[in-house]
Design a protein around this nucleic acid. Structure first.
Lengths: 231, 231
DNA sequence: TAAAAAAGTTTGAGTACTCAAAGTATTAAA
DNA sequence: TTTAATACTTTGAGTACTCAAACTTTTTTA
């Protein structure tokens, strides 16, 4: 049984590995994510590596082993199911749910989790559109592109928001830029460095490219609507 | 902010003080309730006393201060609301809810608790009939008498069960001796040392006096139905 | 390529618990 | 009333974290 501390390290590690496509996560980065000093992270990571959940390469970073990944995904499953549960069943504010789930994810039993899963109808995504790993520890996150990549005049539906901070989520909510919302790109001039998006039945919202990149959408690109990013 | 360890000590202390009518709780008793050795309890209790939550009398025992009581009642409120929530909303088995709530009670936030309270309609008792302290930290437990005190032929309604162990609760449930159940005392001969109680629509159940004493009932005593206990 | 900056590691120490075992006081039995 | 049993406390040590500060390695900049 991993302690809640270790569960946290594993979860952050997994999340970070997604960003950096499986590369070794540097100590400093992990320390910042977990909220400890670099020295503490080094010590903990060595212990985690010793128990076979991660591979530690001194001065290079850490990477989860298969076992570590599985454990991380179970934590993530608990987290995301709880988030959805808090929002859907308990009516907790979208922007607060993340923080609440952060605590609960380490104490909820399999029994309670199964009941929550059932009550929610075995959902596949949480309130931010993040995929919920299966109980077997599988996640499928479809390749999506962002609001920033769409041309003026495109229509899409927001499916996922890549920022869990309550400030950003509050902004997204009041703007109407929430998962399942239909939006029209009113302006996207790459020279301007900002876009204007109008959610259905709401006034248009101005977004920096950085902010726009946090909204993942579908359909991703109909012919000629996509603005290339790379490759 | 009291740690979960301290919250546990306070809760057990409060519960035990109810049993022993406000007397000092002996160390050995507390240690057993919390599940630590007596030495550990002594150390912790001194720390708790130093923070003003309890009064510690060496070799005599511990007693909560007003502040300690208030904190204990907040923990108990969380515990009992969670128990009811687990049973009513999540459909968790009655006998498992206690153990689950034991963990959750230390991590649930005020926000989530308020939402649970609302969802349940501000209930006054948990699934075992134990009163739920108010958010201001008040509990009123009406004086009740037990199944063991009723004469042959009496009819009552079970309102509270004074045993949280899952084995006892499973027995109570399968027998039909649950809160709100109407029962008839078929036989209660003090010489026999056991009684026979028949829940509505169920076969009669034989109970030792010790077991019968764990079922608290109402109406407590109609003229001539009560078997004196003391005073 | 040497010096400065950044990143990572090690060390020593602290907190919040926990236990086992030894010691002390209190109560019960002989 | 000494003795034995019981209850409680103290001590010393261990676990699972945490930090600050000193130190080392790597990378960047000049």
């Amino acid at each position: 049984m991993a302690s809640r501390t270790i569960e946290n390290y594993l979860k952050q590690l997994w999340l970070q590995q997604q960003e950096s496509r499986g590369k070794y996560v540097p100590m400093g980065k992990l320390a910042a994510l977990v909220g400890v000093t670099a020295g503490t992270a080094t010590t903990m990571v060595k212990a985690i590596a010793d128990s076979g959940l991660a591979k530690y390469a001194p001065r290079a970073g850490v990477r989860l082993t298969r076992a570590g990944e599985q454990l991380a995904l179970h934590v993530l499953r608990r987290h995301r199911l709880l988030e959805l549960f808090l929002v859907e069943i308990l009516g907790i504010d979208w922007s607060e749910a993340h923080g609440e789930a952060e605590e609960l994810e380490h104490v909820i039993s399999e029994t309670v989790l199964a009941r929550i899963d059932l009550l929610l109808g075995h959902p596949s995504v949480d309130p931010h559109g993040d995929p919920i790993p299966s109980s077997a520890g599988k996640v499928e996150a479809p390749e999506l592109c962002s609001l920033a990549e769409l041309q003026t005049g495109s229509r899409t539906v927001i499916v996922r928001i890549m920022d869990q901070s309550s400030e950003f989520l509050r902004f997204a909510q009041t703007s109407g830029l929430v998962p399942k919302a239909a939006v029209v790109i009113e302006h996207n001039n790459p020279q301007a460095g900002a876009i204007s998006a109008r959610p259905d039945g709401k006034p248009p919202v101005i977004l920096s490219m950085t902010a726009a990149a946090k909204f993942l959408v579908r359909p991703c690109a109909t012919a000629g609507q996509r603005r290339r990013k790379s490759s």
